[in-house]
Measured scan of single mutants.
Amino acid sequence: MRVFPVYAPKLIVKHARIFLTGVIWVKDLGRLEFEKGRFLLPRKSLPKVKQAILELNELIEAQN
């Protein structure tokens, strides 16, 4: 598990694309899981977490 002390979308996306499957922890967002290079949306999450995951997945799609 990698810990990101700040929310840096480009760096987080780079990590997810390299490792494809895993878990990261982002300060103020908490634990985020990714599989096959995409972030998974938890069943229950705060609106800011949901927005961050959608933003990260959009960045991943834009890079493909």
Rank of each mutant, 00 (worst) to 15 (best):
L29T: 04
L46G: 13
E35T: 14
F19T: 13
L46D: 06
V26K: 00
L40N: 07
L54H: 12
P42K: 13
E55H: 12
Q63K: 06
W25V: 05
E61K: 09
L40A: 05
K36W: 10
G37S: 07
S45M: 13
V13E: 04
V6N: 05
R17Y: 07
R17W: 07
N64E: 13
F19L: 08
G30L: 02
F39T: 02
K36A: 12
V49D: 01
K48Q: 07
A52L: 05
A52T: 05
G22V: 03
Y7F: 07
Y7E: 01
R38K: 09
S45G: 08
L46W: 14
L54T: 10
E35C: 13
A62F: 10
F19M: 10
W25K: 07
R43L: 08
E61H: 09
Y7G: 01
N64V: 12
V3W: 15
S45F: 09
L11Q: 09
I18L: 11
W25M: 09
V13F: 03
V23L: 10
A16E: 00
I24D: 00
E61N: 14
K27D: 15
E33T: 15
M1Q: 15
L20I: 13
F39M: 03
V13M: 06
E61Q: 10
S45E: 07
K14E: 14
K44L: 07
V26N: 00
S45C: 10
R17L: 13
K14N: 13
I18W: 13
K50N: 06
E33C: 14
P9W: 03
A16W: 02
R2I: 15
G37M: 09
V6P: 01
L29C: 04
E55S: 08
I53M: 04
L29R: 03
L29A: 01
L59Y: 06
H15D: 02
V6E: 08
Q51C: 10
F39D: 02
P9R: 04
P42N: 11
N57H: 02
F19K: 12
P42V: 06
Q51K: 14
M1I: 15
F19V: 14
F4Q: 00
E55F: 09
L40R: 13
L32W: 01
P9E: 04
L56M: 08
Y7T: 01
V3T: 09
F34P: 00
M1C: 15
V13T: 09
K27Y: 15
P5L: 15
N57F: 03
I60N: 04
L46C: 12
I12H: 01
V49I: 14
Q51M: 13
R17C: 06
R38S: 08
E33R: 15
S45D: 05
I18V: 13
K27E: 15
F4K: 00
G22W: 02
E58T: 12
F34S: 00
G22R: 02
E61I: 12
R2S: 06
P47Q: 11
V6T: 07
M1F: 02
G30N: 02
K14F: 09
S45A: 12
L56Y: 00
V26D: 00
K36G: 12
R17P: 01
F34N: 00
E58W: 09
V49N: 03
G30P: 00
A16N: 00
R17T: 11
P5A: 13
V6M: 08
V3I: 04
I53Q: 01
K44C: 09
I24T: 02
E33D: 14
L59G: 04
N64F: 05
V26S: 01
F4T: 01
I18C: 10
N64L: 11
Q51S: 09
I53H: 01
K36C: 11
A8M: 14
P9C: 03
N57W: 03
L41I: 11
L54I: 12
K50G: 05
F4Y: 04
L56C: 03
K48M: 09
G22E: 01
L59A: 06
V13K: 02
M1T: 15
H15T: 04
R38E: 06
A8L: 12
R43N: 06
V49E: 04
T21Q: 13
E55Y: 12
R17K: 08
I53R: 00
E35I: 12
L29V: 12
F39S: 03
F39L: 02
L32G: 01
N64Y: 04
K44H: 08
A62I: 13
L11V: 07
L40I: 09
M1V: 15
A16I: 11
M1G: 15
K50P: 03
L41S: 08
N64P: 10
I60D: 02
P9H: 02
L11K: 07
V6Q: 06
L32I: 13
L11T: 06
V13P: 00
L54K: 12
V23I: 12
D28A: 14
F39K: 02
Y7Q: 02
P5G: 09
K44G: 07
M1L: 06
K14W: 10
I24P: 00
F4M: 03
L56N: 02
Q63A: 13
L46F: 12
Y7L: 03
L40D: 03
R17Q: 10
L32M: 14
A8E: 08
L56Q: 00
Q51W: 11
I60P: 01
R2N: 09
Y7M: 03
G22S: 03
I12K: 01
E55D: 08
T21C: 12
N57G: 01
G37H: 03
L32H: 01
K48V: 07
A52I: 08
V49R: 06
L56K: 04
E61C: 07
L40S: 06
K14A: 14
A62N: 10
